[in-house]
Amino acid sequence: MAKKLGHNIIDNDFSLVPIAIKDAWVKKLAGVTLSDIKLTTFQNRHKQEAYKGKLLFTHVGISGPTVLHMSKEVGELLKYGEVTIALDLFPGVDHTILKSQLQALLIAEINKKIKNVLGKLVPSSLVPVLLRLAAIENETPNHSVRSESRKKLVILFKHTPLSVEKLLGADKAIVSSGGVNLKEVNFKTMESRLVPRLYLVGDMLNIDRPSGGYSLQLCWTTGFVAGEHC
């Protein structure tokens, strides 16, 4: 209707949507949640953006508040080529400290197998994955874990790569993007600048917002302002 009345409409697209990942091991962790992690996007080996928060593994990839928040940027990057997301399990700890912590753990539990002690440092659900990615046998005794293997593990703690396949479809999206051009709306009243007595609110507007109730707040606030002036 707004378009028929002369408004410019920014093309509608889905936003805040889970991300499908190519790596098979990700699907095996469906239901596992990680807190206080960092996700960094890369394209052509160049760092793009970083996001901190929670991550949920699903049967097709990753989701959760942090993933939903970064999905629009990932979608834009996919238009220009492949995208990789680096998972950092310890965003507040550098490689040197992690190396020392890992070595201390292996020494303290020297007669045990690495598969049975690594869970004291990282989430236990990730232990088999990290060992496989680092090419370390599950049954390896701690005293036999070589320096090069420890180095690989520390790198994975800070940078486990996830190869993006695609964004999931509109049926999985939390909200959509696009809508009426904001330059054509008087935000003091929410009245159209083109059509008198026409008020534009909520999802009709081209306003991107993160997950966490912001869409509801957008509708409530703009609706209230319009109601005060119509």
Results as ranks from 00 to 15, higher is better:
residue 67 V to M: 08
residue 140 T to G: 02
residue 209 R to Y: 07
residue 27 K to V: 02
residue 7 H to F: 10
residue 191 E to H: 07
residue 90 F to T: 07
residue 202 G to E: 10
residue 47 K to M: 11
residue 142 N to D: 04
residue 219 C to S: 15
residue 147 S to H: 12
residue 138 N to F: 14
residue 194 L to D: 06
residue 181 N to M: 05
residue 223 G to H: 11
residue 40 T to C: 04
residue 130 L to T: 00
residue 202 G to I: 00
residue 16 L to C: 06
residue 98 L to I: 03
residue 6 G to K: 08
residue 94 D to S: 06
residue 136 I to A: 06
residue 72 K to Q: 10
residue 72 K to M: 05
residue 70 M to R: 09
residue 110 I to T: 12
residue 77 L to N: 09
residue 42 F to T: 02
residue 67 V to P: 04
residue 88 D to I: 00
residue 133 L to P: 02
residue 114 I to V: 15
residue 77 L to I: 12
residue 108 A to S: 14
residue 229 H to V: 01
residue 182 L to A: 03
residue 66 T to L: 08
residue 33 T to P: 01
residue 44 N to D: 14
residue 48 Q to C: 05
residue 157 F to S: 05
residue 207 I to F: 09
residue 68 L to N: 10
residue 201 V to D: 05
residue 15 S to E: 04
residue 100 S to H: 10
residue 65 P to V: 04
residue 77 L to Q: 13
residue 56 L to V: 13
residue 17 V to T: 15
residue 207 I to N: 05
residue 42 F to I: 06
residue 30 A to S: 15
residue 61 G to M: 01
residue 152 K to H: 12
residue 145 V to K: 12
residue 80 Y to Q: 07
residue 79 K to R: 15
residue 153 L to A: 04
residue 214 Y to M: 03
residue 166 K to R: 15
residue 60 V to A: 04
residue 217 Q to G: 03
residue 99 K to Q: 12
residue 135 A to W: 10
residue 160 T to Y: 11
residue 1 M to W: 11
residue 87 L to Q: 10
residue 103 Q to K: 15
residue 89 L to H: 01
residue 160 T to A: 04
residue 174 I to N: 07
residue 196 P to F: 04
residue 19 I to L: 09
residue 65 P to D: 12
residue 190 M to K: 03
residue 10 I to A: 13
residue 146 R to D: 05
residue 93 V to A: 08
residue 218 L to N: 14
residue 118 L to G: 10
residue 120 K to A: 05
residue 146 R to W: 02
residue 157 F to Q: 06
residue 5 L to S: 08
residue 61 G to R: 03
residue 150 R to P: 00
residue 189 T to F: 08
residue 77 L to M: 14
residue 180 V to S: 01
residue 168 L to Y: 04
residue 160 T to K: 04
residue 155 I to K: 15
residue 81 G to H: 09
residue 35 S to Q: 12
residue 9 I to D: 02
residue 225 V to M: 03
residue 138 N to P: 07
residue 198 L to D: 05
residue 196 P to G: 07
residue 21 I to K: 15
residue 137 E to H: 14
residue 134 A to D: 00
residue 62 I to E: 02
residue 2 A to F: 13
residue 28 K to H: 09
residue 13 D to E: 10
residue 41 T to D: 12
residue 38 K to N: 09
residue 212 G to C: 01
residue 26 V to R: 11
residue 191 E to W: 10
residue 175 V to Y: 09
residue 226 A to G: 08
residue 224 F to D: 08
residue 184 E to N: 10
residue 114 I to W: 08
residue 45 R to Q: 14
residue 203 D to F: 02
residue 92 G to W: 01
residue 27 K to H: 08
